[in-house]
């Protein structure tokens, strides 16, 4: 007998190339609607996913297109969870410094906005490293109210 699961999930693996961003963000938006989120919230989730995957491609993999980015979408009664795994350069939550929007307006500069969007548009953003497998994870959680 199959083990009972308390959530539904599926995975997608893409090459580490920005040409696939639109595919992933479209999927994230559709998944948000399936999870019961409204249109405006679904759009915000898709932006957060864009930022997270872009960070992996451009920063963790330094723009190298021959790697893989693995995404898993988990649907629970309480939330939509989007897990993003990669084997590039990782970051940990305690290393992050989010720009202060008020300071940003006083001293505008290019860059640094993606993490801020992720943190504003999602309920939780976590970065984890698995030292055994060598994989790094970014986990985005949007609660379903």
């Amino acid at each position: 007998m199959a083990a009972k699961v308390d959530h539904a999930q599926f995975r997608l693996v893409i090459p580490s190339q920005t040409r696939y961003l639109n595919l992933v963000t479209g999927l994230a938006k559709r998944a948000s609607l399936v999870a019961g989120l409204d249109d405006a919230t679904a759009a915000k989730v898709s932006i957060a996913v864009d930022e997270a995957v872009t960070n992996v491609i451009l920063h963790a993999y330094r723009g190298e297109g021959e790697h893989s980015v693995e995404l898993e979408l988990r649907f629970t009664e309480q939330a939509l969870e989007i897990h993003i795994w990669h084997t590039g350069q990782g970051i940990r939550s305690d290393q992050l410094v989010l720009p202060d929007p008020k300071e940003y307006i006083k001293h505008p500069r290019k860059g640094g906005l993606g993490l801020l969007l992720m943190s504003r548009f999602m309920d939780e953003v976590q970065f984890k490293a698995d030292e055994v497998s060598g994989r790094n994870e970014c986990c985005l959680i949007k609660k379903i109210s």
Partner: peptide, 30 residues
């Protein structure tokens, strides 16, 4: 995404130093 916002941010000083500006109109909700 933030990449596009960065592109706008990267030029704002130049245009304002030349008595110009970057304006936005007709923004969709998201």
């Amino acid at each position: 995404s933030s990449a596009g916002l960065g592109a706008i941010m990267g030029l704002i000083e130049t245009v304002r130093e030349n008595d110009g500006d970057i304006l936005l109109s007709n923004l969709q909700e998201n």
